[in-house]
Amino acid sequence: MPLAKRIIPCLDVTGGCVVKGINFLNLKNAGDPVELAKRYSDAGADELVFLDITASSDNRETLRDIVEGVAKAINIPFTVGGGIRTTADARLILCSGADKVSVNTAAVQNPDLITKLADLFGQQCVVVAIDAKRNRKIEQGKVTIQTSTGPVWFEVYTYGGRKPTGIDALQWATRAMKLGAGEFLVTSMDRDGTEDGYDLELTRALSERVTVPVIASGGAGRPEHFLEAFTKGKADAALAASVFHYNKYPVPVIKEYLRKQGVIIRS
């Protein structure tokens, strides 16, 4: 049997709480990252991703406590990202129990960071997160993709999607892989939060250019979207937040659907 496709719930953490629509649960500890991590792990999630969306220095201590708490609560792999700028930042997170660190803005600004992290902790520890947005203004030197809505290139954004960089996401991925990236977490800014499905053209274009695993992110709303990420998008894993947080489609429901569609899924 080949490798199982992975289903990855993502938890955005700020000030020690998980945000992004879990409020409806209204339980005593509904926003507690450790408790949610345990719940997802028990439900059959294959991996978890934590993104510290505040990522300010005064919150690092809180984040470390959370990482340690999560490591004690679950026994599946998890990645932590947000505000990791140096190898020292990464070491703290990894020594607190995380399996991988995810870098985004800092890697774009200082690509050597990827190599340093890979040399110190191993390539498998280094996830490069790319926030990409379709740009319809075709430029020379960019990889133009013929999509169903016309030609586009995919532009990298940093600072949580606030800053366009003019960098081509596909070219960046190829370069980052050579520098030591062990995995890519590719978020479509066009689709994020829409629940219209992943940007399959972005996912596929990137997946075909790298030889390390690709996690599709941004836009999952229905079980079919996960299926498409694997079949049309050629992704190795699919990440989602709101479908899981709202309990609209719990992890076992998604996995059962995929299994029936012939996708290899961990039971």
């Binding site: 490798l3 390539q123 498998q124 390390v212 190795d236």
Partner: peptide, 11 residues
């Protein structure tokens, strides 16, 4: 020609 490292869940 599969992706290396072999990373993920296998049986």
């Amino acid at each position: 020609n599969l992706k290396i490292p072999h990373m993920g869940w296998n049986s």
